[in-house]
């Protein structure tokens, strides 16, 4: 649910107004998240595992702390006790329901989740897209040993991305359908060809145009294969480097995630 409260709106419209809380938030981030750069204000906003939200005059940030395996929720406001109030507002008064954030989402309804139709909140779509790419990269990183022994890797979220070695080449397969498991507004849809290609290019990075080709077998429906030459002789080394770039949220040169 929090994934629907995106950073861009807070960054552009709200954060500049919350002058007094910014130093405190920065200190808190530094204490809880030692690798945060902090030299770049709100650098975390483009990380796929970090989200901010806003409510009234208060602002907050949430991220999954993978080292500690917890989800941090920070509440802060430019008014006395405002952060505490926001924190309390995050939890349903009925503890039996055990549900977070009922007051934060104006579209909240008990019958469904908060996700909205595509293109209703373009910034949210863009960040969800980054999260999808980031998730795949992390998954490929975790399972790289399987890839090296010849097992294909298959990342499944709303869509499917598969990575396999083909002798000296690599093959990345992108499913053309996004299917969401939640009961929210129906967002299932087909990716456009441009979006499919963007998934591939975002994952592989600045690959020379001569060294990749799309291939769709005549019998295939629902996926596109990309065959490519890893930019380095050692595919493992290339994958390591590319994944590190993605996890550091370094966009592909010339890419514009908001485009999708």
């Amino acid at each position: 649910m929090i994934a629907r409260w995106l950073t861009q709106r807070c960054r552009d419209e709200d954060v500049p107004r919350a002058v007094r809380v910014r130093p405190g938030l920065a200190r808190l981030l530094e204490e809880q998240y030692s690798s945060s750069p902090l030299t770049d204000a709100w650098a975390g906003r483009t990380r796929a595992d970090t989200w901010t939200w806003h409510h009234g005059d208060g602002r907050g940030v949430v991220w999954r702390d993978r080292d500690r395996d917890v989800l941090w929720l920070l509440c802060f406001a430019d008014e006395h006790d405002g952060g505490y109030e926001l924190g309390h507002a995050l939890v349903d008064a009925d503890s039996a329901r055990d549900r977070l954030y009922p007051k934060l989402d104006p579209t909240y309804a008990t019958s469904g989740g908060p996700t909205a139709a595509w293109e209703e909140f373009v910034d949210e779509d863009a960040l969800e897209w980054l999260r999808f790419i980031h998730g795949a990269a992390e998954f490929f990183d975790d399972r790289q040993s399987d890839l090296n022994v010849g097992e294909p890797l298959e990342w499944r979220a709303a869509g499917v991305i598969r990575l396999a070695l083909e002798d000296d080449l690599m093959k990345l397969t992108v499913g053309t359908r996004l299917v969401y498991a939640d009961e929210a507004t129906d967002r299932d849809r087909y990716l456009r060809p441009g979006e499919i290609e963007e998934v591939f290019l975002q994952l592989v990075g600045d690959l020379d145009d001569d060294f990749w080709e799309a291939h769709v077998p005549p019998y295939a429906h629902g996926y596109v294969n990309y065959l490519f030459v890893p930019p380095r002789p050692d595919a493992g080394a290339w994958l390591d480097a590319r994944i590190a770039e993605i996890i550091a949220a370094k966009p592909r040169r010339g890419s514009d995630p908001s485009r999708v």
Partner: peptide, 19 residues
Amino acid sequence: GRVLAYRKTLGLSRDDVDV
């Protein structure tokens, strides 16, 4: 379904096929 496999051979841009 196959247009991405045709794109380069046909000299089309990504925008051309983004339908």
